[in-house]
Structure formats: structure tokens, C-alpha cells
Design a protein around this nucleic acid. Structure first.
Lengths: 126, 126
DNA sequence: CGAATCTAGATGCGTGTGCAACTAATGTCT
DNA sequence: AGACATTAGTTGCACACGCATCTAGATTCG
């Protein structure tokens, strides 16, 4: 019976911690940069993946989003001129996604907010 | 520059861990008991709070849901006959929420699934 | 080669969410 | 008591999400 209680405690604190941080992140990013958390995370993934693989698949894998949600997130980012979406030549089903200059700038700005919120609301690990 | 990287690492793993567990929980609870995670969490809160305080406020406080989301979650649970919603007599704005017998049964069943998923997908703390 | 199968991504649909506005009841202050 | 402010909870609205489905392009195999 002991380990069950420990599990639940762990889950509860995970839940509390995640929601605290995610909620503040969402609001701060939206208010200061007009970005949702998913949109920011997408941009963020693109800054660290510089190779030219099929992006959508890779992104979906690296993120917590369903394929359809990612597809729509990308559409929003394209409409906001933050990323480009180009078809892959070898496999024309594939889609490349790439930051625009505007996207890179926006990401850099938002990154500061992101870090500030993390510093303020993420309790440091012992 | 060091602590920033640590913060981001911490956030990334929190994100990954939360989504892994939440996603599996959501699916398992829905499939086996017809409950969303929010609904289960609401029931769960009610089993541990046996006093007769104004429930909605207390629940909202104890949970990660907005007031409106909680209100609708409660409505769903009432419609499913899992909880009762009664007006408080002293303060007729207040609302009491209480498990029905069916609700208590359903919660007990679902709790087993909940624990199983946690045991399987929550990496134990060292 | 041509048909069946599979894969990458987009889209229709239903649903849960947060925000803001609303209703109803309580509290306050003169 | 009457006007104003505050509080508890609900509801209108827009939107992001997941699931299932669909389309288009690749692959496999007779």
C-alpha cells in the first residue's frame, strides 16, 4: 500500500508543477509575443534541428502534439510568416519546415520570456 | 549560461513526463470507464474531502482547472449521475457537490486503472 | 507495367478549455 | 432601508486538441 501512495503523491506534484508552469508560460508568451505554447515549442525545436530531414515527422516525434495538431500549428506559423513550408523533392509527400528571419527574431525575443517564466515558476531540483 | 540550460532541461523532461502519463491516463480512463482525466480527478478530490464546505471553490482551488471548466465538468458528472449538486442554504450562491453511490463505485473502479497506468508510465523518483 | 498496400500530411468533426460577460446572492456604507 | 461593490457560479464564444478519414505520392509484388 505504501508505494501506491508514493505514486499518487508523485503524480499530484507533477500535475501541480506542470500546470503552474504551463499556465504562466502560455499567458506570458501569448501576451508578450502572440504565441501559444505549442507554437513557441515548435519554433524552439526548429532552432535546434538544423539538418534537412523531413520536418513534420521529426517535429511530431520530438513534441507532445498529435500529428493533426502539429499540422495546424504549422499552418498558423506559416500564416504568421514565422516559418516556411516547402515540399520535399525526393519524396513529394514529405514537408520541410524552416524558420523565416522573422520567425528567428520572434523566437529569440520569446525565448527571453520563456526563460524568465521558467526561472520564476519552476522549482529547482535539489 | 549554465543554470539556463538546466532550467530548460528540467522543463523539457517535465513536459515529456507529464504528457506521457497524462496521455495514457486519459485514454485508459476513457476506454475503461468513460471518464476524462478531469472528471476522474474531480471524483478523486471528492473522496478525500469529506467535510461540507462550499465545494466548487474548494475544488477549483485544489485542481488545475479554470472555474468555467470545472463548472462544466461538474455538469457532466451530474448528468452521468456520478455526483449531486445542491445549493448551500446559508449562502445560496454556493454549491455543494457530493458523490453519489454510483459515483463512488465508478471512482473505485477507475482508481485501479489510474494506479496501474501510473505504475507503468511514471518513472519512479530515485 | 498495373493493382494493392503503405506512408506523409491535411481536413471534417466533436469536445474540452480559458476568457470575458452575465446572473444571482451577499456584504458594506451612509 | 437603498445604492454600490463583491463574490459564487454559469454561459457565450472562439479556439486548440485528438480521432478518424481522406488525398496524394511512394512502394511492393504478381
Amino acid at each position: 500500500m505504501e508505494p501506491e501512495a508514493a505514486l499518487i503523491d508523485q503524480w499530484r506534484s507533477l500535475l501541480a508543477c506542470y500546470n503552474e508552469v504551463a499556465c504562466h508560460l502560455e499567458r506570458a508568451l501569448q501576451e508578450s509575443h502572440g504565441l501559444s505554447l505549442s507554437e513557441f515549442e515548435t519554433l524552439d525545436r526548429l532552432t535546434t534541428q538544423n539538418c534537412d530531414k523531413r520536418r513534420m515527422q521529426d517535429l511530431a516525434e520530438a513534441m507532445y502534439l498529435s500529428q493533426s495538431a502539429l499540422s495546424r500549428t504549422v499552418t498558423r506559423l506559416v500564416n504568421a510568416d514565422l516559418i516556411d513550408r516547402t515540399h520535399c523533392v525526393q519524396d513529394r509527400r514529405g514537408v520541410f519546415v524552416q524558420l523565416t528571419d522573422l520567425g528567428r527574431t520572434r523566437h529569440t525575443e520569446a525565448k527571453a520570456t520563456h526563460l524568465a517564466v521558467l526561472a520564476q515558476h519552476l522549482t529547482p531540483t535539489p
